[in-house]
């Protein structure tokens, strides 16, 4: 049982420039609420987004802020609300509480939280302006028409959506920010199977720095012989070799050679 926070990474509509992309204030408040509830109830907090690879920057920010786990459901940036809700519901099934922002920064209809609740068959408390943790229960205030308020008490599994004013997202620590930069983000494909495809563990990248090749000093009686020995290209000098191996052994052999030549580094 976990607390799941759903966020939406949005490109600015003016020029679609990723440098200015991000999540809404409401999504930030949802993340902070999720983290606080998880801490209070001693649960773990998972953050999910449905979007393209570039959306992983917001998941890294979430990790840096203290999310235990993050997941990206691979989908185009313009995935519609129903499809987004379907994808989210698949991965929220086992969580105790789902927290969303009540709007994304592209100001959609705000319908995703309700659709997720419907798919999960859970209770919902949407458009919250206050969330307080009282023991095992959440005491929340909901905005109604005409300036009225509704106070609700949330105990069982439910879906919440919060306004941006509910909580200000904490500032990530420097160390967490640095390690979140290198974190590997889990990605799942957006299909009905629900199988989680872990991205392969990548070896740390480094610039190409081949090892120096040792060339033995030439032996020979005359200078001409020695120069020939160094510059002669007619013989193979042992470079290039054909071996026939089973696929597994061949892979190992290739890795070993790449390592010897300095193309990869042992992690």
């Amino acid at each position: 049982m976990t607390i799941t926070v759903c966020i939406k990474w949005v490109l600015p509509n003016r020029d679609g420039d990723e440098r200015f992309a991000g999540i809404s204030l409401a999504d930030q408040a949802a993340l902070e609420t999720g983290l606080r509830v998880a801490e209070a109830l001693n649960e773990s907090c998972t953050v999910i987004t449905v979007g393209p690879a570039a959306a992983e920057t917001s998941l890294r920010d979430a990790l840096a802020c203290g999310a235990h786990d993050v997941l990206r459901v691979d989908a185009p940036a313009d995935t519609d609300s129903a499809e987004t809700a379907r994808a989210l519901a698949t991965y929220c099934e086992h969580s105790r509480l789902v927290v969303c922002g009540d709007y994304s920064s592209d100001r959609g209809s705000g319908s995703v939280p309700a659709l997720v609740a419907a798919r999960l068959g859970r209770g919902q408390a949407l458009g919250l302006i206050d969330v307080q943790i009282v023991g095992e229960t959440l005491s929340v205030v909901r905005r109604l028409d005409g300036g009225r308020r509704e106070r609700l008490s949330v105990t069982g599994p439910a879906v919440l959506s919060v306004e941006g004013s509910v909580a200000r997202l904490r500032r990530a620590s420097l160390r967490a920010t640095l390690s979140a930069n290198d974190a590997i983000i889990d990605v799942v494909t957006n299909d009905a199977s629900g199988a989680i495809r872990r991205t392969p563990e990548a070896a740390p990248l480094r610039p190409y720095r081949p090892r120096a090749r040792v060339v033995p000093s030439p032996t020979g009686s005359s200078a001409l012989d020695r120069v020939r020995q160094i510059t002669d290209t007619s013989s193979s000098k042992g470079h290039g070799e054909t071996v026939v191996l089973e696929p597994g052994d061949a892979a190992n052999r290739i890795l070993e050679s790449l390592h010897t030549w300095g193309y990869v580094q042992e992690s």
């Binding site: 500032r171 620590s173 420097l174 160390r175 967490a176 920010t177």
Partner: peptide, 9 residues
């Protein structure tokens, strides 16, 4: 030192 929590580098 930086302005982040736990911000010494």
């Amino acid at each position: 030192s930086t302005d982040r929590p736990d911000g010494d580098l």
